[in-house]
Design a protein around this nucleic acid. Structure first.
Lengths: 206, 206
DNA sequence: AGTTATGTACACCGATCCGTATGCTTACGG
DNA sequence: CCGTAAGCATACGGATCGGTGTACATAACT
């Protein structure tokens, strides 16, 4: 078993070294979330990653690029895992997106967009891309569930997720149950009593 | 006679002095919103307020206190004005809360909570208080409109507002129309006997 | 071998940050 | 008129920030 998980980024497939880059990104994931981006200095980050500062700046041209890569690599199994669950009906999958563990601090994309405060920043672009991707997947699932206007429902559910994340942060309390309740209403309202497996025909057929 | 402590800012103020405090808070409102809190230094802020640094630190013990006061004084006519409009039915007032001008950058409370990153910070407490106050006013209006569960509806609508604010920030696009659409569904769903739409002066004892 | 990429250790730089110290100027009130 | 206090200008201090430079060590692949 290769101790190095994956290290492919080099153009010529260089596999030397001892994975400093991964350690840096790992420390970023932890510290940026715990303390925020701006409050995490490169010195502290390098110390946590057990990487010399020089090495860090050989892998990333600057902190901005590191932040961008931190966001780009943030493939949250939290969400991507939800959409692939074949044991759930499409409707249940839509609702499962709101079952986040209460310990989740905050969507890092929102935090980054606020902290960086520059829509032109590369990391801000990744944040936008991610948010759009989530909405698209929600829309796909909504279509699969037979929603009348899948794009609209996807966008609405995505907005609910972001609202729960932001509100949880400000209030320091879990707001996802509220969002899930709204989502249930929206979904029921958008699925015209579908004959599918989602709902067991309790709705009045049109 | 009481030499008019500077903590009074009513319309009758300013007998003496040149109102440095108000200039500082005015500059804060502008710069904190345009650039964020952390990216705005006290030097820049004092320059914009045309106030010497010494004076600023005689009015505020530090930046933290200034930030807290900035949030405390942020009584957004945007929202508070909505709930007092007597020309609208309660239901219309609930929906009017989503009619924000597209230029609004972002709810400063969310931004502050993210930037300060410390739930114990005084400003974070003000942010929580404000969010709860908004939800409470929404709940009051929902009750006035005859909602079955006003508290729940108020919390749901507040979540929608926050979601729209956060999402607008990340996507750099206006998300309030989407939130308004969801709000309309929720409201219609929560007002049971509400036959038809616009109506005025129905039973509202309470 | 030996070369080359990768990583380390540590000092260092300029900029910026928050906050303070010192001294001076102005406006008002009695 | 003078006294008091609010406000002004400026420089400084100590800390931290992002980012470099230099010299040395290690691993990998030829």
């Amino acid at each position: 078993m290769n101790p190095m998980t994956e290290l492919e980024k080099g153009p010529t497939g260089r596999r030397r070294g001892r994975g400093a880059r991964e350690r840096i990104l790992g420390a970023s994931r932890q510290l940026f979330r715990e303390q925020g981006i701006n409050r995490t200095g490169m010195d502290q980050l390098c110390a946590a990653a057990q990487v010399s500062k020089r090495t860090a700046y050989q892998h990333f041209t600057g902190k901005d690029e590191l932040v961008a890569e931190y966001l780009r690599r943030f493939d949250p199994a939290v969400l991507s895992g939800v959409f692939d669950r074949a044991d759930l009906t499409p409707r249940e999958r839509l609702l499962a997106a709101f079952d986040v563990s209460p310990g989740t601090p905050l969507c890092p994309y929102i935090a980054a967009a606020v902290e960086l405060h520059d829509p032109q920043h590369p990391a801000s672009r990744y944040a936008r891309d991610y948010k759009k991707a989530v909405a698209a997947r929600l829309a796909d699932t909504a279509r699969e569930a037979g929603a009348a206007d899948p794009e609209q429902l996807g966008e609405q559910l995505a907005l609910l997720i972001d609202g729960a994340a932001a509100r949880s942060r400000v209030l320091d309390a879990d707001a996802f149950p509220t969002a899930a309740a709204v989502a249930a209403v929206l979904i029921d309202n958008a699925l015209p009593a579908a004959a599918g497996d989602g709902r067991r025909g309790e709705e009045v057929p049109s």
